[in-house]
Each structure stands twice: as structure tokens, then as C-alpha cells.
Design a protein around this nucleic acid. Structure first.
Lengths: 218, 218
DNA sequence: AAATAAAATTAGCCAAGACTAATTTTATTT
DNA sequence: AAATAAAATTAGTCTTGGCTAATTTTATTT
């Protein structure tokens, strides 16, 4: 059984691995968790001893099959609770992440599976991320962002890469949800700002960072 | 905001206060939590500093109004989650206590109220304990036990005083639930064992300890 | 290649919350 | 009342999981 901290590190490593596919360094983990690199080095030792990760200076940190399994189940619990909070308790998009962050650590052998069943076996969470099944398999994960769309192109919002309440509240304000149609009217060469039209309405300008945080289907 | 440990101590003190109206000593708390009395003395100091309890050698530990409020809200969350686990996720009577023990510590300002609404504002939890409302008020708590019934008397099970899985599984085996009718046929003078008839069926003998753990309405 | 910057690591410290062992205080017996 | 037992308290230790500061290793510039 893993401690709360161990679970948070596993989840963090899993996310970094999914996000970039790049080398996962102690500094990257430290930045992601807001911890000191020295603390990360300690935890890398603990997780290595538990055979949940392998650390190689050249390759960085990698999850072992056991570590991947544990991390996947944490993510499964997180995303299922997010669905519950939004659909059953009526929370808003931007409120659920932090609460799910706590709920995901509840330990019980059958809880996730019962919750999954109760929710009707959802494939995606409210942010558009696929929910891993009990066996670790999950639906397709989208990777194209609004910033990848060609000028003039149309797309549909399928997920968000950033789940901070700042971003989600901004989306709310712009009237953007999962499923919203967006046309990319123009890319400003100077700073890669994007001029877009949301659901065919009046045009708005958003930043490159914004565009890279919104996952879309063409 | 209270830590996990602080919350567990508050809940423990609350339970001891409800159970017996007796003096709450460090040893009693230690026994109840399975901790060392020395640890309890430390925590008494912490909670006193936070003005959640008052400790007087003569009177023992008492909750302040602030401490009572915090404790009541923890109990509220615990009992609401128990209802959720049983009614929505299909857990059995004896499985829900330990999971609720973890869920009760999830911190969010509106979670308990949303859950309460989602569950239809239940008055009692699956063990028959009244669920405190957001304002701290709650329905009547039963205090008469099967051991208090006179020989020949009839009664109806309304709650359990003991929520260990050992007891609850034993009840299950005997076919006793909330609402079950019991007749007390005889009290054995030797050891206060009770000869009972469950729902008018064949008679069984149970211990004094058993009788004192079952709350009834005459 | 040498100099510099960045990243990783080590060493030592801290707080929370548990523990044991020893001591003091309070209660109970004889 | 004195002796004994029980309860409370103090002092000091341990583990987890953070931290800072100093050092070593690795990368990047010049």
C-alpha cells in the first residue's frame, strides 16, 4: 500500500510521462509538485526501493509495470470522482479537480468499480480525459490542440490540457465547453495569438498558451 | 482547519461524550483510539491551544462550542457518506464504516450539503444514528438497549451502538436489521444472557454485551 | 578546452504525531 | 494513614516527508 505522498508522486510521474513522453527529471517533478528537488530525490529513492519506478540518470524516471498499474488506478479514481461531483452533486467544471484530488486517495478494493457502475461506466471525465478501466485500458486520448489548427480551419473542443480553475473559469467566461465548435480565423505571427470564432459568434483573440491548453478534434 | 489527527481526536471525544456523559480522561481517549496515553496528552495540549477543548483534571476533557461544532460536522459527513455507500454503491452494512472513516475528512465547504441534498436529506444513517444537520441539530438519538427490556417484552431494533464488522456480521447472521422486531423471552440471572425471539421465529440466546449493543424502541 | 550555469545530490534540520520509559500525581486498598 | 495501584505527565526517540545550504556532477557557453 502506498502513502498519500507516494501516490501523489506516482500520479505526477504518470502525468509527465503522458504529457510529453520526454525525460522525467527530478527538477521536472519538483516543479510539477511545487516541491524542492532535494525532497524529490528522497522520494525517488523510496519509490525505487518499492520497485514502482526505475531511475536512470540518462533516461530519467520511468514507471515500472507495478508503478504504472498503481498510477493508473489513482487516475481512474480521480476521474471517476470528478464525474460524480459534476453529474451527481452539481459542482461546476472548475471546482471538481481539487476535491477529486482528495477523494482519489480513499482506499477500498471495490470502491472505484462500484462508483464506475453507479455512474454508468463513463468513458471520459468532465475535462475530456479518458477514464482508465479497472484493467488499465482506456479510450483514446486527444493530443491535437487549438494551436495546431491551420488558419481558417474548424474544430470541436474535446478536452482541456490545463485543469486549473483559472483556465476553466476563463473558458466558462468565453462560453467554451466540451463539444463547442471553434473556427480559427487568424494566427498573429508576432506572438502566435489566435483569433477565433466560438460557435460561429463574434471573434475573440486568445493567447498561444490558451491555444495549447485546449484539445480539439478536427 | 484541523489536521486528520485532530479531527479523529475531536470525533472520539464527541463519541465518548455522547456515549456516557461521564468524565472523559486521557486514558479513555487512548483506549478508544488505540493510542498511547502519552500521545493523547500531547494532542490535548494542541486542541486546548486551538480552543477546541477544555481540559480540567477534575472534569476531564470537554468540547468548547467551537470544538463541538467541528466534531458535529465530522460526524455529519461520516453518516452522510455511510448512507451514500449503502444506498448508492450497494455496500453492505458492515463494510461502510471504515470507508466513511476516510471520506469524512474530505474538506470542501459545500460537499456535505450537496451530498445531503443528493441523498434526500436522510435523518438517520444505516446504523440508526441521527445525522446532524448543517446547523448541528439532529433527530432523536435512541438510548434504550435490548438489555433494558423486561422479560416477556417486545421491541423494535432502531440502531446499533457498536459498528464493528464483527457485531454487524453477527447481526446479519441472526437476521437482525433496523426495524426487526424482537421479543425478550428470558433473562438468565447467572450472566445476564438474553433468550430472544427474532421476528417471532425460533429462540436464540445472546450475551449481555450483545444486548447492550442493540438500541431499541419499545 | 575552460568557464560558467544548471541540475542533482548529500548532509543536516524541522514539525507532526506516534512511541517507550521514567516519574509524578491521584485513587484505592489494606 | 500508609502502602499500593492506577493514571497522568514528562522526557526523549522514531518515522514521514518536507525544507535549506553546500557540494558534486552534468550541460552549456564562450
Amino acid at each position: 500500500m502506498n502513502t498519500l505522498s507516494e501516490e501523489n508522486y506516482l500520479k505526477c510521474i504518470y502525468r509527465l510521462w503522458q504529457d510529453k513522453g520526454q525525460k522525467i527529471t527530478p527538477t521536472a517533478i519538483a516543479d510539477s509538485l511545487g516541491n524542492n528537488p532535494a525532497s524529490v530525490v528522497d522520494m525517488i529513492r523510496k519509490l525505487t526501493d518499492k520497485q514502482l519506478i526505475v531511475y536512470d540518470k540518462k533516461k530519467g524516471v520511468e514507471l515500472t509495470p507495478a508503478g504504472l498499474k498503481d498510477a493508473t488506478l489513482i487516475v481512474r479514481r480521480h476521474r471517476l470522482w470528478e464525474v460524480f461531483l459534476l453529474e451527481k452533486l452539481g459542482y461546476h467544471w472548475d471546482e471538481i479537480h481539487d476535491i477529486a484530488e482528495e477523494l482519489e486517495h480513499i482506499k477500498d478494493a471495490t470502491l472505484a468499480d462500484r462508483l464506475d457502475k453507479f455512474l454508468g461506466f463513463p468513458e471520459y471525465d468532465p475535462h475530456g480525459d479518458p477514464i482508465p478501466k479497472a484493467n488499465g485500458k482506456m479510450a483514446k486520448r486527444y493530443s491535437t490542440t487549438l494551436a495546431d489548427v491551420k488558419a481558417g480551419g474548424h474544430c470541436r473542443v474535446v478536452a482541456v490540457k490545463d485543469t486549473t480553475s483559472q483556465f476553466l473559469q476563463y473558458l466558462q467566461k468565453l462560453g467554451i465547453n466540451i463539444g463547442t465548435r471553434i473556427q480559427l480565423l487568424e494566427k498573429i505571427a508576432f506572438d502566435n495569438s489566435l483569433v477565433i470564432s466560438i460557435n460561429g459568434e463574434e471573434q475573440k483573440t486568445v493567447s498561444q498558451k490558451f491555444g495549447e491548453s485546449l484539445l480539439i478534434d478536427l
